[in-house]
Nucleic acid binder design. Structure first.
Lengths: 115, 115
DNA sequence: TTATATATATCGGATGACCAATATATTACG
DNA sequence: CGTAATATATTGGTCATCCGATATATATAA
């Protein structure tokens, strides 16, 4: 595991606050993808389209696929056997745990923003 | 107004999706500050402490003050006359509008994340 | 078969959030 | 008064997100 991945992991999903990355608000894309995949397994384009529906702008391939690659390398998502041209991703148990932790922090941070 | 500020403005607060910055998820700090100030006027340290309470980690001075400066330069917040060592910030009308737009986009993007 | 559309993938570059270190000003306390 | 603590502010540097461009593979249509 590279240092970059470790930092990303710590920053986004660690419950341990003894690191310097907690205040970095970047990385909502990974979080959002995990959340979307927790609803139902999807392939890359499906995810991009769902994000487009929510944000009004579709993330480019250069955004979505590296993000998926990171999440896969971290063991948070797994790709089913490639069938044809689509690759369907779903959450691993580790991904579910990561999402749970991440969600708790997200909710706590933005408490009151939602009506 | 510099180009950087314009891009930031467009990215974070514009309802116009015809720009290339909508998919950038960075900048949650500015949004969070606007939200906190909408509850009550605060000075820098108060804001930092409230964020610490929510996130579990206090943003450094090098994070919070440039963020406040940006928001001020964009006309979203205004500083009351400096009394002693504290500078109390509050939202301008433009800041309130920005927050409203930003909030709508935030809620739409993360729909379902909150319980 | 060939052409087009779709899905996946990678790379280079730009960007700006963020922190650590540092500096200054004001207040509080001895 | 001088020292310590608090609040504000700036700078330099690191970092990873994100996009645009490009490439490849598969599926569909002609």
């Amino acid at each position: 595991m590279t240092n970059i991945l470790r930092c990303y992991l710590m920053r986004q999903f660690s419950g341990d606050n003894n690191n310097n990355y907690c205040c970095d608000m970047r990385g909502m894309l990974g979080f959002l993808i995990l959340f979307l995949l927790s609803k139902k397994p999807m392939h890359g384009q499906e995810i991009a389209e769902e994000i487009a529906r929510r944000k009004g702008e579709k993330p480019s391939p250069g955004t979505i696929y590296p993000a998926l690659k990171n999440l896969r390398q971290m063991g948070f998502i797994i790709s089913d056997e490639k069938e044809g041209k689509t690759i369907v991703y779903s959450l691993t148990d580790r991904g579910k745990n990561a999402l749970r932790t991440s969600k708790r922090r997200f909710i706590q941070t933005f408490l009151g923003v939602f009506p």
